Simulated scan of single mutants.
Amino acid sequence: MGRPSYLALLRATADSLETGRPIRGWRPAVRKGELDWKQAR
């Protein structure tokens, strides 16, 4: 299932980055100053 728009995807991504909650099974993480996405468990 995709997102209804690019704006919705950007909002969901921003929310995930702010809260750490997964988005579509992926969780944001920072490693050595770079953004990475890990599979949520």
Rank of each mutant, 00 (worst) to 15 (best):
P4G: 11
L10P: 00
T13W: 01
S5Y: 08
V30P: 00
A8C: 08
R24E: 12
P22H: 04
R11A: 13
P28G: 12
P4Q: 14
A29T: 13
T19F: 04
V30E: 13
Y6F: 11
A12D: 14
L17C: 07
T13H: 05
R24I: 00
G25Q: 09
A29D: 12
G2D: 11
S5K: 07
P4S: 15
Y6C: 09
T19S: 15
Y6V: 13
E34M: 11
A8D: 14
R11T: 13
A29S: 13
G25V: 12
K38Q: 13
A14L: 15
R21M: 08
S16Q: 06
K38C: 02
A12L: 08
T13G: 01
Q39F: 01
P4R: 15
V30S: 10
M1V: 11
E18P: 00
L17G: 01
Q39L: 09
M1S: 14
T13P: 00
G25K: 10
S5W: 08
G2K: 13
I23R: 08
R21T: 03
S16V: 05
A14S: 12
P4F: 10
P22W: 01
K32A: 12
G33F: 06
R11S: 12
I23P: 00
Q39D: 00
R21N: 09
L7D: 10
A40E: 10
L35D: 03
T19Q: 03
L35W: 09
E34Q: 14
A12I: 00
W37K: 05
M1P: 01
P4M: 13
E34T: 14
A14R: 10
A12P: 00
I23S: 04
V30W: 15
P22L: 02
A40G: 04
R21V: 03
D15P: 00
M1H: 11
L7K: 10
R41I: 00
G20F: 04
P22R: 02
A12R: 04
P22I: 02
G2M: 07
T19R: 03
K32P: 00
T13E: 07
G2F: 02
G20K: 06
R11Y: 06
A8T: 03
T19W: 02
D36V: 15
D15R: 12
L9S: 07
A12G: 07
L35E: 07
S16A: 15
D36M: 14
L35V: 05
R41P: 08
A29Y: 09
S16H: 06
V30F: 12
L17T: 07
E34V: 14
M1N: 05
D15C: 08
W37D: 02
G2R: 14
R3S: 10
A8P: 05
E34R: 15
L35F: 06
A14K: 09
S16M: 05
